[in-house]
Amino acid sequence: MTLLEAPFRSQLRVLSLTGLSEEARMVLLQLGVEPGEALEKMHVAPLGDPLTIRIGEQLFTLRKEVCGLIEVES
């Protein structure tokens, strides 16, 4: 499933980032989003986009279109 479809507030593991461009993957890599790494989907903005993601102890927001391209497993 993609990060967009994944349930809130549960531990997820990144499987792949294949739909994203090379540059986008490099940016995410340096935030700590890469295959094998853990993350958690925390909540969604009042208007439905973007989403908050917890990586380690930090909270980041990512827009839906990016979340839709991140494959995860629980």
């Binding site: 540059e23 986008a24 490099m26 909270l59 990512l62």
Partner: peptide, 8 residues
């Protein structure tokens, strides 16, 4: 930006 993200 390659990725639009905001650090909270």
């Amino acid at each position: 930006n390659v990725i639009d993200m905001i650090h909270l």
